[in-house]
Design a protein around this nucleic acid. Sequence first.
DNA 1: GCTAGCATGTAACTGGTTACATGATTCT
DNA 2: AGAATCATGTAACCAGTTACATGCTAGC
Lengths: 190, 190
Amino acid sequence: MATAATKRRSRTTYAILGFLADGPKSGYEIKQDIEVQANHFWSESFGQIYPVLKKLTAEELIEKVDSPDSGKRSRQRYAISALGLAELKEWIVDPAEYATIRSEFLLKLFFGSHVDLDVSLQHLEEYKSWHLRRQNVYTKYRQELAKDKAPESPESVYKMAVLEFGIESTKMALEWSQKTADNLKATAES
Amino acid sequence: MATAATKRRSRTTYAILGFLADGPKSGYEIKQDIEVQANHFWSESFGQIYPVLKKLTAEELIEKVDSPDSGKRSRQRYAISALGLAELKEWIVDPAEYATIRSEFLLKLFFGSHVDLDVSLQHLEEYKSWHLRRQNVYTKYRQELAKDKAPESPESVYKMAVLEFGIESTKMALEWSQKTADNLKATAES
DNA sequence: GCTAGCATGTAACTGGTTACATGATTCT
DNA sequence: AGAATCATGTAACCAGTTACATGCTAGC
């Protein structure tokens, strides 16, 4: 098993490999990292993480490390292997697939003519507060990225770029929500 | 079966009911409508549409209409029933669920430090052209919405609002892509 | 000693996609 | 006649979520 196998793996696999490339982690820590750093564009459930961790260990893309973590809770950390890193890189290079998003919120708004105006306005309000909450998370994480580590480290630059995407998204979403709510109200009055 | 049953149905169900609320359609036509009108926030596959259509007929939320469609290809149209409309409305009123998006593109960019700068620039290029293609679709559909029907009809207003979201999204995405590409290049040079 | 949270794991389910099979109709 | 595309349908598969089960550790 010298060269990296090229069969397609689940995206969970690559997400895990990617986060392990930052350093050894347990399944639990991977989940936390994803929630903090990647909340706006990725998610994983434990039911997915643990089995994949097991499988990747068997295939030697990652390996258990005995944490000199004396006294801590029982947890098992994994480190990415050279083979794993090679597969991760291969995957990153591959063109990304653009899965169509399914936004329940937009679907409901789309069908808004069948219900009272208030319903759609309410949906828009919830949507706005959802994005406002996210804005807070972003600003917090941005500060961390800016000072905690070397701000010009190669990883930080990429992570910052993706974070920037989240920030711009919320900004756009908030502006659009406001505009749309105003529009709907105006149309109803006439 | 007088009152609308309240058990949760798949989102495909409601998407179908919603599009049928615009008028009787076949499974094939529903798919087309979704692709034209809802491309940026929804999608359905035939493998999902036809079985649901069957199930909804059995439950009397929709009913077969014998199309006076003489000479046309063999196709079966369905119309939404009063019961179906009631369930649709119930669902629209319910708070929307915000499923976390999973963007393979953003994940790859996030891990960009592990590969050559060119790889990420290439991903950004593809991302840009993907959004440019969408922009064309949007402008076309916008014109249709504006002239084809009464532009101030209640449905058009909601559909326009959602389309506007798509337009703003692509705009934001294109600006961010450009900025990010420039940033990455600048950081690499220093 | 008890509770809350840390941590791992598995089994069952489900929503949805892909691939396949089939036939009708229209156009050339 | 043959190709393209319209149109419906099903079976197999799969990725991912939910719910459940378990046990450890830290703090009260």
